[in-house]
Nucleic acid binder design. Structure first.
Lengths: 338, 338
DNA sequence: GTGAAAGCGCTAACAA
DNA sequence: TTGTTAGCGCTTTCAC
């Protein structure tokens, strides 16, 4: 293994000077800098991150803690991860997906071991216990999502208000007046107080009231089968509906196939609009779903930036911290029949 | 921060003794061990993994290097990851998903920094450049998948021969005689020499010949849209087909919806069997797909074990290293019409 | 069975 | 601008 000592010797300088050019922490004459860089290149030097971490007390590793047991890691999550990793890499950090349980104990363990400088938390619940864990241990973290009391917590999230506004506005513009929201299942303990469910449902109730629509909300687990059941219920109990907003990705697939199966043609008879969805998921349905596209790439990058700013003692991330999902018109929406 | 020194002082022993009980590397009197453990508990000691890594030259971190740019990280990959992480945790290792490009340069960087003890490689190509990188740097690694020359490389993989055997056998048992394989798209440079495509297609040709079936193979990208196109082509060019085997997960969804759209009822008119699939994906189609279930959980755990055995200098993983996908009968297969 | 002490490779005062 | 040096918290010989 080539160490800084080897580089220093070859360049005829002290090990400290090598450290200075490596970290750019002190001014160094262009000439010596060049000699050092040459020596590093010739020797194929790669700085040992473990030693650096021990000495500087910064590992430059960020963990994206994903509650893999309770939340399925699908395409949306993959988008968050990829963009977050890229944002981290651009700032000399490693971002890794660290599979942890949701109970917070594994998280405690992880941060206690000093392996990570900070944590990006996904799938946050309004009263998420993991937040308390991280605060308790003094670990820097950023949220993708929000707790109820978000004062002073670094966070980014979807702008549910604007998203729902635009979604309903779009359907209204097409001529729809009888809508229904297929929301998430808040009775499921894993999603108890899950932010996106609570916030988008609240937003929908507000917006529907503003438009003077009757407010109908079904709860539905995030599964294709559950979506099919919701479709059946919808057809049975609310046959006058002309457009459906679906919150969960996989429910949305089920709503489409459920409607198809019941002989309701989408979008001719009824429109379906996904409220939060990744393009890969939308492409799986037939017809391809119209969607409010989850701003995963933006949020992953912003969340990471917010955390790194903390780590570096920089100014907090400037607004906006809330990013709306943008409308992508697919094949599942059209004007109402008649 | 509570260090071993603190624990040692409180227990009235030397720091070395603390290390011995922590790592179980030397015999220690039950009495002193107990004193030490008590002290650790009282102080809330957590050993600093970074210091341990520097001193022992082992980070106890395993990277699952996933080529996120070229291969989409879907439900199957998530299964591998989750089971691998669990297997690692059971043996005092951390397994993390480390997003890297596929060109091998990022991988070189990663292992050069000494942050990981070893690498689990997924989505291996028959002539994968990353293998050379890891061999060049002397990094221990295990493959989930196989290169062409797998001598001496630690690996686990799907048993494509058995999988295809059983898949075709099942369809044959239902009475099907006119099959078609919708394979992957080997002309796509990202999947050039991608093991699963090559091996399952070869297996299929062998098995079809054994049954005396005409061998028809379509190539199809791993996307729902492409699967729909394949369905159209199939209906047009091979209308006598009564059963379709589909290799790619997302193609399979498209084949189903494509057939539905063309007025061919699945499974009444034609059966569809997914050759490699995760349950979550199968549940997304209507009808729910019959599948050969990818042994993701088994392979993730086995691959991790194989690597850890190397790291610990233990005996290599005993066979079997090839695990077949198991048949799960869903709603997309039935006897042929007539 | 336990302790003393020399590192692991690097960072960051402090000196020069 | 550059060098000296004391750690970072732990592992691991080598004595006792």
């Amino acid at each position: 293994m080539v160490t800084m000592r080897d580089v220093a010797k070859r360049a005829g300088v002290s090990i400290a000077t090598v450290s200075f050019v490596l970290n750019d922490t002190k001014p160094v004459t262009p000439a010596t800098r060049e000699r050092i860089e040459l020596a590093m290149a010739e020797l194929g030097f790669r700085r040992n991150m473990v030693a650096r971490a021990l000495a500087s007390r910064r590992t430059h590793i960020i963990a994206m803690a994903y509650p893999a047991l309770d939340h399925r890691f699908g395409f949306s999550a993959a988008e968050f991860l990829t963009s977050a990793a890229e944002a981290a890499r651009n700032q000399d950090y490693h971002l890794v997906l660290w599979p942890v349980g949701n109970d917070g104990t594994e998280l405690t363990e992880l941060v206690g071991q000093g392996l990570v400088d900070g944590v990006v938390l996904m799938e946050v619940q309004l009263d998420d216990p993991r937040v308390a864990v991280l605060q308790g241990t003094g670990t820097p973290f950023a949220l993708i999502g929000r707790t109820t009391t978000l004062e002073s917590l670094a966070h980014v999230d979807i702008d549910f208000e604007t998203t729902v506004d635009n979604a309903v506005g779009y359907l209204h513009g097409l001529g729809h007046r009888r809508l229904i929201l297929v929301s998430g299942d808040l009775t499921d303990p894993r999603f108890h107080n899950y932010g996106p469910y609570v916030r988008s449902e609240a937003a929908y109730r507000r917006v529907a009231a503003e438009y003077g629509f009757e407010t109908i909300v079904l709860q539905c687990a995030d599964a294709t089968r559950a979506g099919q059941d919701a479709a059946a219920q919808l057809v049975r109990d609310h046959p006058e509906t002309t457009a459906v907003l679906v919150l969960n990705e996989y429910s949305a697939l089920g709503v489409i196939s459920g409607l198809n199966r019941l002989g309701h043609s989408v979008p001719a008879d009824i429109s379906v609009l996904a409220l939060l969805m990744a393009p890969d998921t939308a492409a799986m349905s037939d017809p391809e779903l119209s969607m409010m596209r989850t701003p995963g790439p933006e949020l992953g990058a912003l969340g990471t930036d917010a955390l790194i700013r903390q780590l570096e003692g920089a100014a907090p991330l400037p607004p906006p911290h809330l990013i709306p999902a943008k409308l992508h018109i697919g094949g599942s929406t059209a004007p109402p029949p008649g």
